[in-house]
């Protein structure tokens, strides 16, 4: 039973990594569609540079962190991913509380769930515990 749950966690973590990577690559290859997913319109000039650069880097970075965690089995990589995704949820909430942004629960809830999954992965899929499913 434990092995099944671990397998499931491994697959879920892998899907999370792929999703982050695809989102990051979309910002590089087809930014208008990627922006639409986040209820954004594309900016122009310097703002567009920041929009594509920062958001794309965030998602590519997240995907690579999780992949590195899965491959090296070092928990620090999962922690790094979890910190970033929790920070995103926190900043969304702050934006709603103090800056008049919409409360985007459809983003905040998945971010909290993903962050929690990464913390669990840091505990269950790393070298201190039983290894990746054989």
């Amino acid at each position: 039973m434990k092995n099944v749950l671990r397998n499931l966690l491994w697959v879920l973590t892998g899907l999370i990594a792929l999703n982050f990577l695809v989102t990051g690559l979309r910002w590089a290859v087809a930014p208008s569609g990627a922006a639409e997913t986040f209820n954004m319109s594309l900016f122009n000039g310097a703002a567009l540079s920041s929009q594509i650069g920062d958001i794309g880097a965030f998602f590519i970075g997240m995907g690579l962190f999780v992949l590195l965690g899965m491959v090296t089995k070092k928990r620090e990589w999962f922690f790094a991913g979890a910190i970033l995704v929790f920070a995103a949820a926190l900043f969304r909430t702050l934006a709603w509380l103090f800056h008049g942004a919409s409360l985007m629960m459809q983003f905040i809830v998945p971010e909290i769930v993903i962050g929690t999954l990464l913390l669990v992965a840091a505990k269950k899929l790393t070298a201190d515990h039983s290894q990746r499913p054989e």
């Binding site: 990577l21 695809v22 690559l25 979309r26 290859v29 690579l64 992949l67 590195l68 899965m70 491959v71």
Partner: peptide
């Protein structure tokens, strides 16, 4: 774009898989 994203994704994921 979808095809390009797929190719880039493979280029990223395959080295990780080989390493693992």
């Amino acid at each position: 774009p979808a095809i390009l994203i797929g190719i880039l994704l493979l280029l990223i994921v395959v080295p990780f898989a080989l390493y693992a």
